[in-house]
Design a protein around this nucleic acid. Structure first.
Lengths: 351, 351
DNA sequence: TTTGAAATCCGAAACCTTTCGGATGGACTG
DNA sequence: CAGTCCATCCGAAAGGTTTCGGATTTCAAA
């Protein structure tokens, strides 16, 4: 009831109105102007449903938030969402959001959107090394762009942060501070970002001739970090701790580690160094302020949308990727190794 | 190409297939069974676009994230989103998300969804006392459910936390600890939640015969809290501070306050008490762990969806509302007032 | 046997847009 | 003047679903 309304008013065919508004060349500029004026006057908006029906696409993309075990509130996703929103809007794409815990329910959520033809493509985040979502989407021939990589037969479009390189740099910084036994606190599960960061840690250690055995893992939350560090501290007599520095897979874990340290009376940045990853807003304000790594989430989001529009326009997903570099933000949670731990490390690196 | 596919295969009319699947009564149970079996076999899903075109509704609801000044990553929204997602899915509703900074761009985002008939209704969060979104939506006769109240002529459906009551309780707790000069750190702007919480603080103070003048405000972020507390601490000579406790409008602000305190060598929970609001994941792990207030965000999200479906089914929005109670979580950032400040307060309450 | 109602089914229209394949008229070419 | 070509317009179909207003059959009641 709308293209037709303009067409009646202006005594033109529906076709002509449609083509005028659609910017086609076979309509005179005079007619086009008349149509545009009338469209503006009655504030015409094409009916999305009709358009989708006719064009056979949804002009929408899906994003399914991975609900975590327990409470789910990682600032990462919000930053991604808020970057992706305007970019998508500018491209004329809607964003359909849902949430599901990884596993069958998650796949079902993807299937729901695909089979209902609700979206043309997906944005994926928080990739896992063996990622069922990738298999499913590639199989169903649904385009997507991921934030992070995973091991799949066929390559796909992605944006990723070079976690390996920058964590290696952070670890080297600790080595430069005199630390000899540096632990890595990995995120549990097979989260790609954690594995990339871990290998940066390992790399720096190996290069410096140190052994990379002090690795433990926990849920990528504050509680996970706290529990892991707490367990570590309880496992040895006070003053007998081997580890003098901890590189954490995420800021949230680092916050938990800081807490466990404070609880035991250990001073982060002096007795033990801690480095996080993400540079979330709260990390400036921990006690002490957290040395961490800033990754360009907003830029990544915008880049993902750009890739998506290219793919939707026919580009080959296999050729589209970008690895962005992250930046070490030195604050106060790390520093020179205390004499004591420098000596103790000679006894061994394992825990 | 799909109802028709079933109809051809089964030698029925499209009408009958549609009505069989739609649960209408004028189709024999034998036929219905055949249709259902075939639909299952070919994994039939109605085409959303076609359905929307015909039915004239979108079966989708919109949620526009208010991008803040600077970086935007309040865990509140993520918790709300993850609660709302599954509830909406169960009701057969899609969730369309966008983001925009409050102001003209925000209204434009709402208009975009409304006028493109992309959604049937909205979910609103982070209400402001004078909220242009409410005016616009009521005017355009688009249903919505809000989290939080605002001052509008016509009432609307909302779920809210009773911030006033619980903050009064928290403030009384501080008074019970012997604090006599208790400040409130409000969120800037005219955010409803902050105003409700402020009035709880004021109420408790007044009831105890204390003067409620120590109020200052800042952006509802860690940086905002830090700057405000920092400025306060710098404005007086050390040891001359009037305020012995601070009630913060949000946990994020409280984190900043904690940081400012630590920087000056003041011990939160001993020299100065701090209470937050939200009980976000990181609040368990601040130094010291933050005494705060837990509000039921997930339950609120589910309740909002329930209300929305009622409204979409014809219920009167003006009769739908629920005020949920929040809970004080006592941790270590507050405690008995130090002798010193108890004496000093006699000098005056203002800052 | 006729009538009427109930149980089942179906044709066609409508929702709004896009696009294929022309149609029309005028200007230009040869 | 016949033939071409171009600029501009339009009719009709298609896309998948729902629903209005019957049509047909069956069966019991009169």
């Amino acid at each position: 009831m709308s293209l037709s309304r303009i067409s009646r008013k202006l005594d033109l065919s529906i076709t002509t109105v449609s083509r005028a508004l659609g910017g086609h060349s076979d309509v005179s500029s005079a007619t086009r102007a008349r149509v545009e004026a009338e469209a503006l006057r009655i504030d015409y908006r094409p009916h999305e449903g009709a358009r989708r029906l006719r064009r056979g696409r949804a002009d929408a993309v899906g994003l399914i938030l991975p609900t975590g075990i327990g409470r789910f509130d990682d600032p990462f996703f919000l930053r991604l969402l808020s970057a992706v929103g305007p970019a998508l809007a500018e491209a004329g794409l809607d964003l359909l959001v849902s949430s599901a815990p990884p596993g069958d329910a998650e796949l079902a959520a993807y299937r729901h959107m695909v089979e209902g033809r609700k979206v043309d493509a997906f944005l994926l985040a928080r990739m896992r090394v063996r990622d069922a979502r990738v298999d499913y989407l590639q199989n169903a021939a649904v385009p997507f762009v991921a934030h992070g990589r995973s091991s799949s037969k066929r390559p796909y479009a992605f944006v990723d942060t070079d976690g390996t390189q920058v964590v290696a740099q952070a670890t080297s910084r600790l080595i430069g501070f005199g630390h000899r036994s540096i632990a890595f606190l990995a995120a549990s599960g097979d989260l790609s970002f954690s594995i990339a960061r871990e290998s940066g840690w390992r790399q720096a250690l190996t290069e410096a001739g140190l052994i990379a055995t002090a690795i433990f893992q926990a849920e990528p939350t504050e509680a996970g970090g706290f529990d892991a560090m707490h367990a570590l501290l309880c496992s040895v007599a006070p003053g007998d701790l081997q580890v003098s520095a901890v590189v954490c897979a995420t800021d949230r874990m680092a916050v938990g580690v800081l807490h466990a340290l404070a609880e035991t009376g250990l001073r982060a940045g002096r007795d033990i160094s801690v480095i996080g990853f993400d540079d979330h807003a709260f990390s400036t304000h921990t006690a002490p302020p957290l040395t961490t790594i800033a990754q360009p989430i907003e830029a990544a989001g915008r880049r993902m949308v750009a890739m998506l529009t290219q793919i939707l326009a026919g580009a080959d997903p296999e050729t589209l990727f970008e690895i962005m570099s992250a930046q070490l933000i030195a604050r106060a949670s790390d520093g020179p190794a205390a004499e004591q731990s420098r000596i103790e490390t000679t006894k061994g690196q394992t825990l």
